[in-house]
């Protein structure tokens, strides 16, 4: 009985020891690196989160000892935290609202997001007016034949409430009206593309960087979605993505913003999803 009992209690002890060891190591590690180098705290838009996280990883590899902490939370949260001084940089997928700038926020435009209206490749429609798209998304027009297409029901696909893409689309195209209740809701650009590509007679919208051959991007008011038309101001579905700082940045924070605006980063990472600001 006794030796068995002893063996029984050796394993949990060993386990407890190793768990404590791992925990204490994981607690110690970031503490050390925080003290060694500069810490940059970034929060805000979830649209920008993947890109800024990528920037943070690359930046930390270039500047060993520096630490960039990137959080989501949304544009409003990021700007509020910047104003409170909790964050060094606020990512935002929209312009500043009234009252958010107390006079000391500095605006860096880091990318141009152009949103393309996409349809399933079999849909024959090539061009829609803003009014027509509004009628589709509010559920007033429910058949492609009313828009010069085949006699098929329209499947509306839209983004979720939290999406900055949807926020702009609702504002620019729907004018704040409520989208139809039967619309399919997708959580990301990638899932939206997959859904439109696999659903017949569907229509949706994604960032231009995500458009590929599985979906068909259509013209809006006769203008092709892209950098050219957005620059000329004839394509309304575009917006700048911003980084805000409280006062002129200095030290590592300035280095980080400089890195994001650098040609390398803009060409290699930003261009995958958005239009780089260096091309404008």
């Amino acid at each position: 009985m006794r030796p068995e009992e002893r063996r029984l209690f050796r394993l949990p002890q060993r386990l407890a020891f190793s768990i404590l060891l791992v925990l204490s190591l994981s607690l110690l590690n970031p503490g050390c690196s925080l003290r060694r180098g500069g810490l940059i705290r970034v929060s805000g838009s979830t649209t920008l989160l993947p890109m800024v996280q990528e920037a943070a990883n690359r930046f930390m590899a270039i500047y060993p000892g520096s630490t960039v902490l990137v959080q989501g939370g949304g544009s409003s949260v990021g700007i509020a935290q910047l104003n409170e001084g909790i964050m060094d940089i606020a990512n935002s997928s929209r312009d500043l609202k009234e009252g958010e700038n107390k006079g000391d926020l500095v605006d860096y435009k880091i990318a141009l997001d152009v949103i393309a209206v996409i349809v399933h490749p079999d849909v024959r429609v090539e061009n829609l007016t803003r009014e027509q798209i509004k009628e589709i998304f509010t559920g007033e027009v429910v058949n492609w034949k009313d828009l010069g297409g085949a006699d098929e029901p329209i499947m509306v696909v839209m983004r979720d409430r939290a999406s900055g893409t949807r926020e702009m689309f609702d504002k620019v195209v729907l004018g704040g009206e409520d989208p139809t209740g039967s619309a399919i809701e997708c959580n990301s650009n990638g899932i939206m593309r997959e859904t439109v590509a696999s659903t017949k007679n569907s229509i949706g919208y994604i960032s231009i960087g995500y458009v590929n051959s599985t979906v068909k991007a259509i013209k809006l008011e006769g203008a092709e979605p892209g950098a050219e038309s957005a620059k000329k101001g004839i394509y309304p579905l575009s917006r700048f993505l911003h980084m805000f700082t409280k006062g002129e940045p200095s030290g590592r924070v300035a280095d980080f913003i400089e890195y994001i605006l650098s040609e390398d980063f803009q060409r290699e990472v930003v261009s995958k999803e958005y239009i780089p600001v260096i091309e404008l």
Partner: peptide, 27 residues
């Protein structure tokens, strides 16, 4: 489909409580 409509049809888009929480909790 994560649609917001009340439906009793098997092939209409709708949503469940858990799916709706995941869809909307972001911001």
């Amino acid at each position: 489909g994560n649609s917001r409509q009340l439906t009793f049809s098997l092939t209409n888009g709708t949503s469940t409580l858990a799916a709706r929480i995941v869809t909307d909790m972001g911001e």
